[in-house]
Amino acid sequence: MVFEQKHILGLEELSSDEIRLILDTAESMKEVSERDVKKVPALKGVTVVNLFFEPSTRTRASFEIAEKRLSADVLNFTPTESSVVKGETLLDTARNLEAMGASVIVIRHSMSGAPWLLARELSSSIVNAGDGFHEHPSQALLDLFTVREIKKEISGLKIVIVGDILHSRVARSNIWGFIKLGAEVRVVGPPTMIPRDIEKVDVKVHYNIENALEGVDIVMMLRLQKERQESGLFPSLREYSRFYGLTRERLGLAKADVIVMHPGPINRGVELSSEVADDMHSVILNQVSNGIAVRMAMLYLVASGGGSG
C-alpha cells in the first residue's frame, strides 16, 4: 500500500488502512532506534521545519529526534511573542520558511485549524503537531502504537478517556483513531467538559467515573488545565479529583490487565493519585520511545507520499 496523503492533519481524515500503515512503518522505525547507529539516510537533503507557536518541549524534542534519525535537515522556529506583536501573520511566517527550502512543516499552534490554513496555501507537506482543541495526531498514533504493542489487537478493546474532553486535542485524535481501528470508546468527565453532540461519533458519554471504568482495557487520563477552574467549568481541584481522579480502588473496576495512559505532564494528586502514577511509570516511558518511532513514520510517509517532492 502506498501512502497517498500529502499532509497529516488529523486522524479524522485518515482511513483505518492509512493508520495501520503508519503503525506498521513505525515498527520498522522503532528497530532503527534500537540500533547502535540510530540513523538512516531516508530524508537526506529534505528540510523539515518545526514551527512551534506553543511551548512544548516534549513533542518538539521528539519530532526533532525523529527528523535527525531520518537524516533530514532540521530547522527549529519558535516565534516569540514579539514577532506576533510585530504583526507577521502565520501565513507570512510559513511562506518565508518555505522560501528557505522547507518541504515539510511540522506545526504546533494554539488555534484549531491553523495547519489547515498552511495546507491550503503552501506547497509543503504539513504535519500537525497539535492545533488548539482540535487534533494531536502524533500523540494519538503513538498511543495506538503503544496499545497495539501491548495488546496485539486494538479491535474489540474498551477504552475510556477521562477528564476535560472539550478542550483536548489528544482526546479528539484518540477517539477517531480507536474508533477507526474497531475499539469501543467511552468518555467521562464533568458535563461542562464534554463537547456537544460527541455521542454522534459513536462514543458513549458517562458522567460517573465508576460506571465508565467498568470492564475497560485502557484508561486514558487527560491533563486537567487549572485555568478551566477560573472559567467556571468546575468548582475546585479538590472536588474534581474526588469525583474524577483515578485511584487504585477505582482502577479495580477495570479489567485486571488494564493499561493506564497519560499524555503528560501529570498533575499528581489531581487526575491521578500518586500510587497510580507510580504504577504506570513504565508505560509512560515506553510511550516516549514509541513517540519517536511514530513521528519518524509520519515524516517518512508524508515526505515520500502522495503529491510531495
Binding site: 500500500m1 502506498v2 501512502f3 500503515l21 506498521d24 512503518t25 515498527e27 520498522s28 522505525m29 528497530e31 532503527v32 513514520a297 517518512y300 515520500s304 517532492g309
Partner: peptide, 11 residues
C-alpha cells in the same frame, strides 16, 4: 519514487 514500496522490518 514511482511505485514506492512500504518500509518493512529489518531483523
Amino acid at each position: 519514487k514511482t511505485d514506492w514500496p512500504s518500509v518493512q522490518k529489518t531483523e
